[in-house]
Simulated assay, not measured.
Amino acid sequence: MNGFEKRAQGIKNKIKQTTFAMLQTALDLKGMRIADIAKEARVSQVTIYNYFGSKEALLTEVIKDYAEKSIRDFEAYLNEGHSLKEKIEHILSLEKASYKELPPGLIKEMMEENRELDRFFREQYQEKTLPLTMRIVQEGKESGEISEKVSAEQVMALMQLYMNQYELVLGMAAQSEDREGFLEGIVHMFFYGICGKP
């Protein structure tokens, strides 16, 4: 990469970082304007259009980068030899962090309005997320951390139930006097039920 390409990549990265930071506090996508992104990133609007072509294309690239990095980081974590419980706790903590980093309603809005992004997330789920989750379950079965009475499909179903309602669970935790204790209790119930013991 020559000097010009390095400078160009630096500008592009700055625009994407600025856009991601603005997404974290955005109330809706329509309120985000190229003019505001350009001002915040200290570049011209023309520069943004030259690099990305449109606001939609910029937002798509920013969200794709975020998702791909999250998956890479998660896969690296799985390769560190953690227990099943640690892996599940890590998944839940990642969900909690992602809700803080990007409002879930905003991602949903983007997916509804952007077919490319919707297709991207569906592909990522099928090609990356689902196989990684199956790997966790399979390793848990092999290590004896998941009961032999429970099938991989049943574990996946339970995890999906939790993930589908995690936004609601986080909202309930936020209203609790002991937010962290509330979430720890949810993790405990995931592994041991309401009557089980660790």
Score class of each variant (00 low, 15 high):
M1H: 03
N2R: 04
N2S: 05
G3T: 14
E5L: 12
R7E: 03
G10W: 07
N13W: 09
N13V: 13
K14T: 13
T19A: 13
T19I: 12
F20A: 13
F20D: 02
M22V: 14
M22T: 12
L23S: 02
Q24H: 06
Q24Y: 03
Q24S: 12
T25W: 07
L27C: 04
D28Y: 02
K30G: 05
G31A: 10
R33G: 00
A35D: 05
A35Y: 08
A35Q: 10
D36M: 10
D36Y: 09
D36T: 11
A38Y: 10
R42Y: 01
S44D: 09
Q45V: 14
V46N: 02
V46Q: 07
T47H: 00
I48M: 01
N50R: 10
F52K: 02
G53F: 12
S54T: 10
S54Y: 05
E56V: 11
A57S: 08
A57G: 00
L59I: 15
L59H: 01
T60K: 01
T60D: 00
K64D: 00
Y66S: 07
E68R: 11
S70T: 14
I71E: 02
F74E: 04
F74C: 03
F74P: 02
E75Y: 11
A76V: 15
A76E: 09
L78A: 04
L78M: 09
E80F: 04
H82G: 01
L84I: 09
L84S: 01
K85N: 00
H90I: 11
I91V: 13
S93Q: 14
E95N: 11
Y99D: 01
Y99L: 08
K100W: 12
L102P: 01
L102V: 15
P103M: 09
P104N: 07
P104Y: 10
G105D: 09
I107W: 01
M110E: 04
R115K: 13
E116W: 06
E116Q: 07
E116P: 01
E116L: 08
D118A: 11
D118S: 13
F120N: 00
F121S: 02
R122A: 09
Y125D: 04
K128Q: 09
T129D: 03
T129K: 06
P131W: 07
P131S: 03
T133S: 07
M134L: 11
V137L: 04
Q138W: 07
E139K: 13
E142H: 06
E145I: 13
I146T: 03
S147W: 06
E148H: 08
V150A: 05
S151H: 12
A152C: 10
E153N: 08
V155I: 15
M156K: 09
M156C: 09
M159D: 03
Q160D: 07
Q160M: 13
Q160Y: 07
M163A: 11
M163L: 14
N164A: 13
N164T: 13
Q165G: 05
Q165A: 13
Y166Q: 02
Y166L: 12
E167A: 08
L168K: 09
V169T: 15
L170T: 03
G171V: 15
A173E: 05
A174L: 12
R179L: 08
R179M: 10
E180D: 13
E180A: 10
G181C: 12
E184D: 11
G185L: 10
G185Y: 07
G185P: 05
M189D: 02
F190D: 04
F190C: 06
F191T: 11
C195M: 15
G196K: 08
G196C: 11
